[in-house]
Design a protein around this nucleic acid. Sequence first.
DNA 1: CATTAGCACTCAAGATGTGCGAGTGCTAAC
DNA 2: GTTAGCACTCGCACATCTTGAGTGCTAATG
Lengths: 342, 342
Amino acid sequence: MLTDRQLIILQTIIDNFIQTATPVGSRVLSKNEKISLSAATIRNVMADLEDLGLLEKTHSSSGRIPSEKGYRYYVDHVIGPSIKNKEVDLLTHMIEDNIYEYEQIVQTSADLLSKLTNYTTIILGPDVIKARLKQIQFITISPQLAVAILVTNTGHVEHRSVTIPSGLNVNDLEKLVNILNEKLYNVPIIHLEKMLETEIYNLMKKHINQYDQMYTYLKSVMRYEQPVKVFIGGQTNLLTQPEFRDIEKVYSLYTMMENEEKIAKLLESPSSGIKVTIGNENENDAINHLSLITSSYNLGLNQMGTIGLLGPTRMEYKKVITLLKSLSNELSQLLRQAEDKE
Amino acid sequence: MLTDRQLIILQTIIDNFIQTATPVGSRVLSKNEKISLSAATIRNVMADLEDLGLLEKTHSSSGRIPSEKGYRYYVDHVIGPSIKNKEVDLLTHMIEDNIYEYEQIVQTSADLLSKLTNYTTIILGPDVIKARLKQIQFITISPQLAVAILVTNTGHVEHRSVTIPSGLNVNDLEKLVNILNEKLYNVPIIHLEKMLETEIYNLMKKHINQYDQMYTYLKSVMRYEQPVKVFIGGQTNLLTQPEFRDIEKVYSLYTMMENEEKIAKLLESPSSGIKVTIGNENENDAINHLSLITSSYNLGLNQMGTIGLLGPTRMEYKKVITLLKSLSNELSQLLRQAEDKE
DNA sequence: CATTAGCACTCAAGATGTGCGAGTGCTAAC
DNA sequence: GTTAGCACTCGCACATCTTGAGTGCTAATG
């Protein structure tokens, strides 16, 4: 356990470093009004904090910077009661005014969060796979071409182009659609393909001519290969951070961000609530010099999605955590409303 | 007009610089087998080419690099009959195998083109606004919530969430949909909103209770604010180019690429066919040290979209132009097939 | 005995200096 | 017209110097 004096000095150093990104020396600290100690005394305290592994020097006679352990301590102990602030309210209002298109809300949230924090926002959309089928429709564009449209109970719309087998007539198609809608109503998207292979198959064989031809097309319609949707906001924000003067880092990070799977892996976590991962605590090499703060938002009991904020280890933890908590609550509420209306 | 000797030296310098990104000196050139002249003679030729504004020096005693005018000459005169090569075939086949989902084709094309060239691909999707309405549908998710789905003759699907006014009953909704489909069939997407305001309005007033309430919602459904869709592939490729060691440039470029409007402006051009814009010929500051090669692909007579490749001014013009020509033809054909089937 | 002033020491970063080598332009010879 | 030779230029890499912010230690102080 740290003494009060140690705590305030640690906190001041971290706050300072978060703002300036340069090592903090004893003289600067001694001028801080909260600390009425001479530089020499502060140096002693700093040495103690360094022994505890909470601070680091960049070289033998430099000022101190927080170690990752230091940030960890700061996050766990210093940021206690996070205060709702103006920015949170702004965010909340903007979302409320905009109850419109789901994807749009998420993207706007991502952009807004980035604007407020100057970091990069990554949002994992709600898991489409877990949603249930509300209705399926085919709309013919031409004799050979149709569009299959699937709508889920969450209001999500999926669509695919399908080539129509030449033998299929309008009657058959109608029958087909009727059967599908009857049998697949309320079935989770993830189970559609399996249902098609088992229960539906025999039934169709009976009623539809040339079903085998149609079968392959239907399967391709029902296959949902993209498990989650990734939204990224403020990708360029990180470029303004001095930590990114090195092109190599930019390259590896951006390459990682082009890969939706990797991002999804990064954000997926069993726990719910706020989670802070600092520097090397991240397994992914591309961000092991960054901090990632994630928060999940949910619909009822099923966890649905995750919001993440990516920034340098000297992140404005307090602000970010507050914002994130608020936003994920807001999104959860939105989704719950949609379900309640159902 | 340049002499043969001048031409071959200019060409060799540019080819060389494209590969190495370092100034080319007379000694290196004299060792090239195509040029059997001494270094001294070459220096004289180079001096002439510099006088013509086709070459530049980085400092008074450096080797030469091509000026933008030099690239321009190279593109206009040296790259004559572009040869179909292996890479083009590869690309063509991959597209043919993949006649599936339109957006997917475009995104795959973008990624592929980037992989083949190591530059960044930007594709402007076909103009949704110009497509015509095939069918409109409402699918109710809950008593208060519905999804409106618009399908165009090109197979494009648009969808919006709509809140259902509490007074509206199922009958009315059905009538509404029928009227809309009857009156708006084959109407270009861009005219939908206007039609709604004029012709449709009075008709609806007659048949539907509480139409005024519904009207605002409908308008929001019909409004199509996003004129073109932008696909970007291989965004990180440019980061590997030595021209991008400077974070500032990366920042301004990436910021520009986050803005779909600006990108659309960049690629939109009245002319069809291949267009090469070199360095300062670009009006946009973010890319005025880069070259942009665009090619439009079309459906019948209506120009539909544009493919662009963004790279350093020392771009592999020959390869890129060949690939681009081929790909845009391929895409045009695909879209034409879709229309023919209609 | 905790706190502080003073001082010698350290080290990163910027400024300055130097040598090297790739490349040029010019001139004179072939 | 072409080429060899030579003096000259200048960026770049490298070493050296200077500066100043910051430290740790010690001795004096309330």
